[in-house]
């Protein structure tokens, strides 16, 4: 028996919205400790990793580990039928399920919707990501990071991110010209202005803005985002989801030919 009930179903809707442009189908692994998912985009440039802890669910039960292979597009179609204030319950009682049941219930418990989503058998292409001590970690407003990426993507396809002890600089160079946005360390009380820089070693890395813009679809999951970088390593962009877990995106850098 597997059953997971989310009090704030809207979080699940937002997670699926955030990844649906990046990945088409995923294996969700359910275990006693919670749900996890890892998937690469079709070009194998980026990777998304989701971890939801059992403690963050209103009810959670998973008697034995199961893998749920599903189409994100089809999942998204079903989740459109859930209201933003609804609870969402995922359920299956089969050992090797061919479908996953969904229950959506509104706050007054006056409306209950029930759906079943056909599951797929997908090759598992899980990558081992070691725990990494990143040499530059930036925590800032997710909305502000999203804005910077969006603005710069009209000038260039790539952005160079350069950190120093005091600031992080986002630079672009395109056909029409060049520019940069520098964000300084700022210990403001307001989330929107706050910028935390933990720089052990400065880094200078270049990334495709198209992917960063896709990651930023997760902006509504968390008011802050953390950018984790080490020289010659993928960027890890993390959105923490309150008590529930985290959504991480990894992006391979671009290198000079």
């Amino acid at each position: 028996m597997f059953e997971a009930k989310l009090q704030q179903g809207v979080i699940f809707k937002k997670i699926v919205d955030a990844i649906k442009d990046l990945v088409k189908s995923v294996n969700i692994d359910a275990s006693t400790s919670g749900l996890s998912m890892q998937a690469m985009d079709s070009a194998h440039v980026a990777l998304v990793s989701l971890k939801l802890n059992e403690n963050g669910f209103k009810d959670y039960r998973c008697d034995r580990p199961i893998t749920l292979g599903l189409s994100i597009e089809n999942l998204s179609k079903i989740l459109k039928c859930a209201g933003n204030d609804d609870t969402i319950t995922l359920q299956t009682d089969e050992e090797e399920p061919s479908s996953l049941k969904f229950f959506f219930e509104n706050q007054q418990a006056s409306k209950i919707s029930e759906f079943s989503l056909n599951l797929m058998s997908l090759d598992s292409e899980s990558l081992g990501i070691p725990d990494t001590d990143y040499s530059s970690v930036i925590q800032m407003s997710s909305a502000e990071f999203s804005r910077i990426c969006k603005e710069l993507s009209s000038i260039s396809e790539t952005v160079e991110i350069e950190t120093s002890k005091e600031s992080v600089k986002f630079s672009v160079q395109g056909d029409i010209g060049a520019g940069s946005i520098t964000v300084k360390n700022n210990q403001s009380d307001k989330d929107v202005d706050r910028v935390d820089l933990q720089i052990d070693q400065p880094v200078k890395l270049t990334f495709a803005l198209r992917y960063l813009n896709m990651f930023n679809k997760a902006v509504s999951l968390s008011s802050t985002v953390s950018l984790n970088m080490s020289e010659e390593n993928p960027l890890m962009v993390e959105y923490k989801i309150d008590d529930l877990g985290s959504l991480r995106f990894y992006l391979a850098p671009k290198i000079s030919d």
Binding site: L47, E125, P130, A208, I255
Partner: peptide, 14 residues
């Protein structure tokens, strides 16, 4: 010119 690397260049398949 810059080349886009693949994520598998960094993390191994499990």
């Amino acid at each position: 010119l810059r080349s886009q690397l693949h994520i598998e260049n960094y993390y191994r398949l499990e």
